[in-house]
Design a protein around this nucleic acid. Sequence first.
DNA 1: ATAATATATCAGTGAGTAATGATATGGATC
DNA 2: GATCCATATCATTACTCACTGATATATTAT
Lengths: 116, 116
Amino acid sequence: MDQIVACCNSGTTAIERRAKLFRGFADPSRLAILDALCDAPLAVHEIVTCTKLSQPNVSNHLRCLLDCGLVASDRDGRFIRYRISSPRIKALLNDVDTLLDAVAEGIEACDNYRGT
Amino acid sequence: MDQIVACCNSGTTAIERRAKLFRGFADPSRLAILDALCDAPLAVHEIVTCTKLSQPNVSNHLRCLLDCGLVASDRDGRFIRYRISSPRIKALLNDVDTLLDAVAEGIEACDNYRGT
DNA sequence: ATAATATATCAGTGAGTAATGATATGGATC
DNA sequence: GATCCATATCATTACTCACTGATATATTAT
């Protein structure tokens, strides 16, 4: 069975699509990857280096992000260079940080459960 | 052990905080609730009616959203009225819809796995 | 061709999480 | 104070997901 699955199925309603998109962002590994790609396009091994994630792990997350259209890829010699597919992604991440400024205490403070 | 847990623990880095916030949004039930509250404050039983979710389910999600500071509540007689805590939440949801316009095909199309 | 590097895929595992049904609490009215 | 309605909590169950380690594919260079 497949692995990294935080995007993608055939949910139809607008709300389900939104939930799927949010889930694409709702993982520290994927956020780290997107963060890195917001600065500049990178090849997989470069992402591995700067995120300190394992190579298969990065590859799996990239596949998910690629399928969902959040990143795009171009072959460059024997490298494959990934980049964010739209500047709106960077904008969205900024908006989230703005919202975080407003609710950060709550997010930080509450511990309904033990964590990620 | 606690139940609805998509927010909240003591992750410290900026990325972990962002992931937590995104996870708060990454669920169709919570999105439906937030969507309803974007229009007007509502009591729990009203949310139950318009989202068609079960009452305990709504209550659990509201607790999570409340702890994370995404919604706020006011007692009103024997009702408890919930509202979104910041207009930025509505703005964020709009931004996501804009991004969805750009990547919707990808989100819809790919089916790495089954179900929501 | 062979070796070396870059990337992708596979199988298995363990943990986290959402939903349900039953039950408890708390405020208001009679 | 007993009853009714609104809301919250509990325990259980089933499902989804992320990570690891091993392996496969692809491209370049020798």
